[in-house]
């Protein structure tokens, strides 16, 4: 595979209820990513978007989002009903063809108009799980309970993860949940859905993210410090959660191995751990030791714009390399209930 580089990225602030429409808040994000990439809009040979019509409550909502890219002249574009991280994967594959040298990937979602506990059960088995109203918080609670029963995590550790995420988020202008009480204070809070407390849950967020990719020659020509994608892979486990061991993430481990995590030391990991316990599970699946800085941005517990949050992890990992001098980082994105599908991307500065 040819090396592809990230040459630009941008995010919107994550908000509980965006006043603007999805195309409106996407608009400045895409413009900023292109500007930072030091390319012109007409240089982009392929565009791929990630969004979800169910979130928007409108068929073909993703078509409106294209207005933020520019409606004229016609462009070559595609869409995934997935997080923008998978849009980036498609753009990365597209660049491998070698006939174009710049691609744009973006993700956006406006969760605020709907009720996530009503929407997400609809992506599950329609006979046995959807009628139960198996919402993401209940599913994640089952997963956390399984981990607690197995002894692979404690409620104390879950609170520590939340405190660290919220503390890290204090310096992230895009974060929604910033600053935190200490672990003891959090553990005195009541359960939302046992064994999960408020701090174990992600916020409900509206937001967008965008990343510009380029082939090696183009990246070197326009960018002082390209961030190289050394490996990217995604894997899927069975749809039915009852067929999986929820206390581990085989698909993350496989994706990590195929993305080449162990070809060098990882300094920073941006993980889409949407619930606190999932961070520990992902750390183990990816073999990340205590020396790895996990979610310096605050991660998904601090901002969870569904369909943009995974691509935001890639943008944050790229930022760690291009702005903070980190030499090797990884980003993780997830989709489905209880980490059903996972994508791992390994990034390097040189």
């Amino acid at each position: 595979m040819d090396d592809i580089a990230i040459i630009g990225y941008a995010q919107s602030p994550s908000q509980r209820r965006a006043e603007l429409t999805e195309p409106q808040f996407l608009f400045p994000v895409i413009s900023e990513a292109i500007e930072r990439a030091n390319v012109e809009r007409r240089d982009i040979g392929f565009t791929c978007a990630g969004s979800c019509d169910y979130l928007s409550g409108q068929t073909f909502a993703f078509v409106m989002n294209l207005e933020a890219v520019g409606a004229w002249p016609p462009i070559s574009e595609s869409h995934v009903e997935m997080d923008g991280a998978w849009a980036l994967y498609e753009a990365w594959v597209r660049l491998q063809h070698g006939d174009i040298d710049v691609a744009l990937a973006f993700g956006s979602g406006k969760s605020s108009p709907g009720d996530p506990s009503e929407i997400y059960p609809l992506q599950l088995d329609p006979y046995t799980l959807t009628p139960l109203g198996a919402d993401p918080v209940s599913m994640a609670a089952l997963q956390a309970r399984a981990m607690l029963d197995k002894g692979t995590i404690t409620e104390q550790e879950m609170a520590e993860i939340a405190v660290r995420s919220r503390t890290n988020a204090a310096n992230n202008p895009y974060a929604q949940v910033r600053g935190s009480g200490d672990v003891d204070t959090l553990l005195r809070e009541p359960y939302v859905t046992a064994p999960l407390r408020r701090h174990d849950l992600p916020p409900i967020s509206d937001g967008a993210s965008a990343v510009v990719l380029a082939t090696a020659d183009k990246a070197r020509a326009v960018c002082e410090r390209p961030v190289w994608i050394r490996g990217i892979d995604h894997r899927i486990e069975p749809h039915q959660p009852g067929m999986r061991d929820l206390t581990e993430s085989i698909s993350t481990r496989q994706a990590g191995r195929h993305a080449g995590i162990d070809h060098g030391p990882v300094e920073v990991a941006e993980l889409s751990a949407t619930f606190s316990h999932q961070e520990k599970l992902l750390r183990e699946a990816l073999g990340l030791g205590d020396e790895v800085q996990v979610n310096p941005s605050g991660g998904a517990l601090a901002a969870n714009p569904v369909m943009a949050v995974g691509l935001a992890r890639i943008a944050e990992a790229a930022r760690a390399i291009s702005e903070r001098g980190v030499s090797r980082a990884l980003a993780h994105a997830t989709s489905g209930q209880c980490l059903q599908q996972n994508l791992v991307c390994v990034l390097e500065g040189a």
């Binding site: 006043e19 409106q24 928007s56 409550g57 605020s112 108009p113 009720d115 006979y127 959807t130």
Partner: peptide, 16 residues
Amino acid sequence: MMDYFMQLEYREPLCP
């Protein structure tokens, strides 16, 4: 046979 009725409600304030 199993009937299953569902509805989703979305409320989005008008943008400025």
